[in-house]
Structure formats: structure tokens, C-alpha cells
Amino acid sequence: MQLEAFECRCGDSQFVSMPHKLLDARGTQEPQGVSMMFYPVIQTILEKLPGGVSLPVEYPAGVGQNTASGEKFVIDTINQGLCDCPAQKYALFGYSQGATLMLRALSQLRSEAMRAVSSVILFGNPYRLPGKLSNVNGIGQPGNDATVGLFVNSAIADDETIPQLSTKLDQSSKALDYCLEGDGVCAPNFACSCQLPAEHLSYGLVASVQDTAVEHVIAGL
């Protein structure tokens, strides 16, 4: 949908009172709503910065990994927001399949929409690539950078595009791509038969991950 197709609601108090939106995309087979990996982060941000709103991305989050409807949801939400409230900022969150969704959506945003994105937080990114400035470990510091996400090799073999942050966004300090050591999705050990160890399901429970993510998002907003 093009921006021109939207009905602008500039000046409407319903939108002016929302200086920021927190868009989060859940992981595979999580129920519709805020991902359990991001719930503590988002609740803390809303408490510390009143006036914002949490908006879970609507998409199937099925095992087929089809993120198209969720990508459109993110793009349309930000484009509509540029029309309704041009000063509004957006913090984007993606866990597992949701990280894939956010990476794909970001690659489709036009420059004006990209400027409205104040931060990007990814947990357990299955397309994680080494050498990115945004790659961080469980304490929000550069680390775990030699790992390659679970889906990267198959994408290369199938000659598919690997969803990833643009160089400009990666170098902007807006994005943090968290990967816990032992996470079988963002840091798989192919010598191990278990590809989904507990670490992939632990981001919502690790205080250092939650605290540094909150600090990063609030600094951007």
C-alpha cells in the first residue's frame, strides 16, 4: 500500500498523544500477541516512558516461516504513522521467526520510514551473520560473532536472499542482534542433534538481556 492511499489523521489527539510505538513480532507458534521474550522489555519501557503503545505484529508465526503478512503489517503501520503523526518514533522487536520478519520489513522501508525507526532489537535471529556491528552477546556487548544462523547455509545452497540489516542500519548503532551462547537457532552447533536447546527460549528470563535492551530502546526514544 502506498502512502498516498492512506487517509491522514494529522492533529487527531488519539495519535498525537502516542509519541512512540513498540512493534514486536513473536516467534514460531507463539500465540498472537506480545512475544514472551519481549513482554518484560516492553512493559518496562512503557512504564518508564508513558504515552507509548505496544503493537504486536499480526501474522501466522507458523512452521512454514511465511512472514509476508507481518512484513506488510509493519510497513503499513509505519507509513500510516508518518501520515498521522510525522514525529512519532518506532522501536522494532523480532524474536526468532519474528527477527526474520523484521529484517525483511526493514529492507522494504523507504528512507523517510527508516528515519522514524529509532531502534531494532533482535533475539535468536536464524539468519544471523558474523561480522555485523550489531551482533551482541547476552550482556549486550560485542560477542558471539563467529556464529552463523541456522537458516543461513540452506539459504545459500538454495540461492536465496539472506535477510539482514543494511550496512547503514548495522553501523547506525540503532540495532542490537542478541544471541545467547548455545542458542541452536542463532548459534547452532551442527555436531549436536539438538537444534533448539533451552537457550533459545531463555531471552525473556535473562536479566542482562532484558536490562540492556530496555536501556538501548529508551536511549533511542
Rank of each mutant, 00 (worst) to 15 (best):
residue 187 A to F: 02
residue 207 A to D: 15
residue 144 N to Q: 07
residue 68 A to N: 14
residue 52 G to Y: 03
residue 147 T to I: 07
residue 195 Q to F: 11
residue 50 P to T: 04
residue 83 C to P: 09
residue 123 F to V: 04
residue 69 S to A: 15
residue 112 E to K: 09
residue 208 S to I: 11
residue 197 P to W: 15
residue 186 C to D: 08
residue 93 F to L: 06
residue 80 Q to E: 10
residue 87 A to Y: 07
residue 137 N to F: 06
residue 9 R to C: 08
residue 172 S to V: 12
residue 54 S to G: 06
residue 15 F to C: 03
residue 92 L to G: 03
residue 202 S to V: 02
residue 14 Q to E: 12
residue 101 L to C: 10
residue 75 I to Q: 12
residue 137 N to R: 02
residue 21 K to L: 13
residue 84 D to C: 06
residue 55 L to Y: 12
residue 19 P to K: 13
residue 188 P to R: 11
residue 85 C to S: 13
residue 60 P to E: 03
residue 31 P to E: 06
residue 201 L to D: 08
residue 84 D to E: 01
residue 220 G to E: 07
residue 109 L to Q: 04
residue 48 K to H: 15
residue 207 A to L: 11
residue 185 V to K: 07
residue 36 M to I: 04
residue 33 G to C: 13
residue 5 A to M: 14
residue 3 L to E: 15
residue 177 D to V: 10
residue 177 D to C: 12
residue 90 Y to S: 10
residue 79 N to T: 14
residue 146 A to D: 11
residue 66 N to E: 11
residue 41 V to L: 14
residue 89 K to I: 01
residue 46 L to M: 10
residue 8 C to R: 01
residue 19 P to T: 09
residue 127 Y to S: 00
residue 60 P to K: 06
residue 154 S to M: 13
residue 130 P to T: 12
residue 185 V to Q: 03
residue 172 S to N: 12
residue 56 P to H: 03
residue 141 Q to M: 14
residue 165 L to N: 03
residue 15 F to T: 09
residue 160 E to K: 13
residue 64 G to A: 10
residue 41 V to E: 11
residue 168 K to A: 14
residue 178 Y to A: 09
residue 69 S to G: 02
residue 76 D to G: 02
residue 90 Y to R: 05
residue 211 D to L: 12
residue 74 V to T: 08
residue 122 L to K: 07
residue 62 G to H: 09
residue 216 H to C: 05
residue 84 D to N: 14
residue 144 N to W: 00
residue 34 V to D: 01
residue 135 N to M: 01
residue 85 C to P: 00
residue 78 I to W: 07
residue 133 L to P: 02
residue 105 A to E: 01
residue 30 E to K: 07
residue 55 L to N: 13
residue 112 E to N: 04
residue 46 L to R: 11
residue 99 A to H: 04
residue 125 N to Y: 03
residue 101 L to M: 11
residue 14 Q to A: 13
residue 106 L to H: 01
residue 11 G to T: 08
residue 121 I to Q: 00
residue 108 Q to S: 04
residue 71 E to H: 08
residue 21 K to P: 04
residue 111 S to T: 04
residue 125 N to M: 05
residue 169 L to I: 13
residue 84 D to P: 15
residue 4 E to K: 06
residue 164 Q to H: 08
residue 72 K to C: 02
residue 98 G to E: 03
residue 76 D to H: 12
